[in-house]
Simulated assay, not measured.
Amino acid sequence: MTGRDTAPDAVARLRAAGCVWAEDEAALLEEAAGSPADLEGLVSRRVAGEPLELVLGWVEFLGRRLDVGPGVFVPRRRTELLAREALARVPGRGPGGEPAVVVEMCCGVAPVAASLVPTGAEVHAADLSADALAHARSNAPGAELHRGDLYDALPRRLRGRIDVIAANAPYVPTDRIAAMPPEARVHEPHVSLDGGADGVDVHRRLAAGAVGWLAPGGVLLVETSASQASLTTSAMERAGLVAEVVVDDEIGGCVAVGVSRPAAVTA
């Protein structure tokens, strides 16, 4: 970027707006700007309360930059646990050489699918939002994208064949959305936040439908919170899955794991 040095002014404005990491944010915004005028526009958006990631157009996730933009849910670092669990549970190729089948439900910009594509698995991602799927297409090239409501979005040919379903479904209780930071409450889609009265309505729907779609021994992974994990695992157990919880305190990640029972072996 050429022209006058605008970084000190940017830092001061960001700090005055309450940005804790003003120096770091100013450096990122300056890197993204093509001119002083561009920088002014980016800083103004950030000072007005727009999330940094949406201003930049990307978010870092498991070491890669994912494309994001206005009107989409921004992946959080805690969701890296969901992606790591999905990666760890993708099986090798079957006896006929067929790849594993994995699905990211409620995918948003597809952070988990983006992490899974390099494994060589058959990767699918589904969401209600056309805007989110446009970013998912950029982030997870090679994944098959589907628009619709949970399992209704998936092609019938996947029934009984999916090895891993991973979902960061909305899990904020409805009456707590008003208390969320404006960066989320104002700038991210309400549907990506609202999990119903206790926050796990969508988790129950995911669990209830999973058995018909999972392969024997397949796994459903759902991001949840420590306070809601027992509700999520209870829904999995009612659906016939064997449930447990995995946590990563360092990043605040919490994932409910539900495993379908292997097919019965007949003599």
Rank of each mutant, 00 (worst) to 15 (best):
G3L: 07
A7D: 07
A7S: 13
A10T: 01
A12C: 00
L14Q: 03
A16F: 00
C19L: 13
L28E: 15
L28Q: 15
S35P: 12
D38L: 10
L39A: 04
G41V: 12
V43Y: 06
R46C: 08
V47T: 11
A48N: 06
G49S: 09
L52P: 01
L54A: 06
E60W: 14
L62N: 03
R64K: 15
R65L: 09
P70H: 01
V72M: 04
P75N: 09
R77C: 01
L81P: 02
A83K: 09
R84F: 06
E85M: 11
L87Q: 09
L87D: 02
L87H: 08
G96Y: 08
E98P: 09
P99S: 12
V103F: 01
E104N: 12
M105H: 11
M105L: 15
C106Y: 11
C106V: 05
G108Y: 05
A110L: 09
A113E: 10
A125F: 12
H146G: 02
H146L: 06
R147K: 14
L150G: 01
R156F: 08
R159I: 10
P170G: 05
Y171S: 10
V172D: 04
P173R: 05
P173A: 03
R176Y: 12
I177Y: 10
I177C: 07
A184T: 12
R185P: 05
E188F: 05
L193V: 04
G199P: 03
D201H: 05
D201I: 05
H203D: 02
A207I: 01
A215V: 11
P216F: 11
G218I: 09
Q228H: 13
L231H: 07
T233K: 03
A235S: 09
E237V: 07
R238L: 10
A239D: 05
A243M: 00
V245C: 02
V245S: 06
V247F: 00
E250K: 11
E250S: 15
A256R: 00
V257P: 04
A267D: 14
